[in-house]
Simulated scan of single mutants.
Amino acid sequence: MLHSSAWSAAARAVDVDDAVGPAGRHGATPAERLAVAQAVAATTPTLSAGTAGPVFATLAALAAVDVALARTVEPHLDARSVLDQAGVPVPDGSTWGVFAAEAPGLRVDAHATGDGTVRLSGTKPWCSLASTLSHALVTAHPGDERILVAVDLRHPGVTAHDDVWVARGMPDVPSGPVDLDGVPGSLVGEPGWYLRRPGFAWGGIGVAACWWGGAVGLARVLRSLAASRPGSELLQAALGATVADLADAEDALADAAARIDADRPGTDWAFEAQVVRARVRRAVDAVRHRVVATIGPAPLTADPAVAARVADLELYVLQDHGARDLARAGRMVLERGGVAW
């Protein structure tokens, strides 16, 4: 699957077939996918300088199999990486999410208890698989700043609202809001640490690796169709354009992994991650639109796996905020440079 020369040998050695098993099929349950997350975590290093290549390659390979599978595994691996960076042990058998989104009118407040823990109260939006996971890292506000708190989601004060999730993309990865009522948790890192560390930006690139892998899976559908109709120049042209788009996205990811692994001091990772994510999303959107327009309605109405991949990928890339994120990158250039020209 990997072509770019920038990938490390460790990235090229990634093989997820044994871990995926039957959970790679369309229609696998959340529990089956979380079992894959645990199996993958047992053999995949946490994301750090020196391991970005195999981590990104693993996420991309999973998404090429099934987008919802990658969407389940990615936050579990991300949480474990955060906990490792903070020196916090991971309970045996636990499954993790990262609930860091904010939304107007919703807020989780953190109140110190005096025994080194905090209690969380409020509502957190966009909490994927909250009713299935055992634990999550949750951002909360002790005041004006943000802290990161490890929470046991099995506490009776946790109420997940799966019923509000009506998405056609990833319908079995419910990401509704969660109410927290006096839920105890442990502080992970100092206030503001979660967002300031380079690993926050690196994790964002890992999500882009999932987008790219999801588009690779869709490109395989187009390749199969083109192979079955060798006289169709229309299909060949679409396939050629798709190859170019995916190569551009892969180069962005492989180069980012190589630079993370080189651990060069002074890198503005917030800016670099923004640019990588924008490059990958642009390519993935182009591939998705082209493949859908080229293959026609039959696979989208008769093949549930293809229909799910299109819908899942369309929703997943919306974790990128489009023009708002591009504007953020533009402001960064104006404020602190970052481009050679």
Rank of each mutant, 00 (worst) to 15 (best):
R309K: 11
Q38N: 08
V287T: 07
G214K: 02
A327R: 15
S224V: 14
A79Y: 09
G97P: 03
A256K: 04
C210W: 05
L129T: 05
G114Q: 12
T132W: 07
H141M: 07
V158L: 06
V287Y: 03
D255M: 09
C127D: 04
A340D: 13
D18L: 13
H3Q: 10
R80P: 13
V183T: 03
G157M: 00
A19W: 04
F271N: 08
P142K: 03
H76E: 13
Q319A: 09
G231A: 11
D92Q: 14
A140N: 09
F271W: 15
H289C: 06
A6R: 06
A10V: 07
L234A: 08
L62E: 12
A298P: 09
A63R: 02
A57N: 05
V118E: 02
A201L: 01
A68D: 03
P265L: 05
D152N: 15
S8Q: 14
V216I: 09
R107T: 13
V20F: 02
W126Y: 02
R196M: 06
G199H: 02
I295F: 02
D15M: 08
H161N: 08
A42V: 10
R336E: 11
A49W: 07
S134E: 03
W212H: 04
A11K: 00
V216S: 13
D66L: 13
R119K: 07
L137D: 00
E190W: 04
R223Y: 14
H289F: 06
Q319N: 15
E74A: 05
S134Q: 01
R277P: 10
D312W: 10
G93E: 12
Q319S: 12
A37F: 04
A327Y: 12
P198Y: 00
H3M: 10
A52C: 13
R220S: 15
V138R: 00
D268T: 11
V67H: 03
D66K: 09
A308T: 08
R277N: 15
K124E: 00
I205L: 15
R119N: 05
E314F: 08
D66P: 06
V55A: 01
A103H: 14
R12H: 08
A6N: 07
R229W: 05
A160E: 02
V310H: 12
D303S: 07
V292M: 06
V118Q: 00
W165R: 11
G266V: 12
D320T: 11
A130R: 02
G203P: 01
P299T: 10
V317S: 12
A42P: 14
Q274A: 09
G240M: 12
P177A: 05
D263H: 09
R328V: 00
A160S: 14
T46Q: 09
V183E: 03
D84W: 08
A13D: 11
V151D: 06
L180H: 05
A302L: 13
M332F: 12
G214M: 04
G206Y: 01
S228T: 06
A140Q: 10
S224W: 07
W126Q: 01
W269V: 07
S186T: 12
R80G: 14
E102L: 10
S121A: 13
R277M: 11
H26R: 14
A307H: 06
A340N: 06
A252G: 08
D251T: 07
A31V: 14
V207I: 11
V310Y: 10
V333W: 15
G97H: 01
S134K: 01
D325R: 04
G93I: 06
G192R: 14
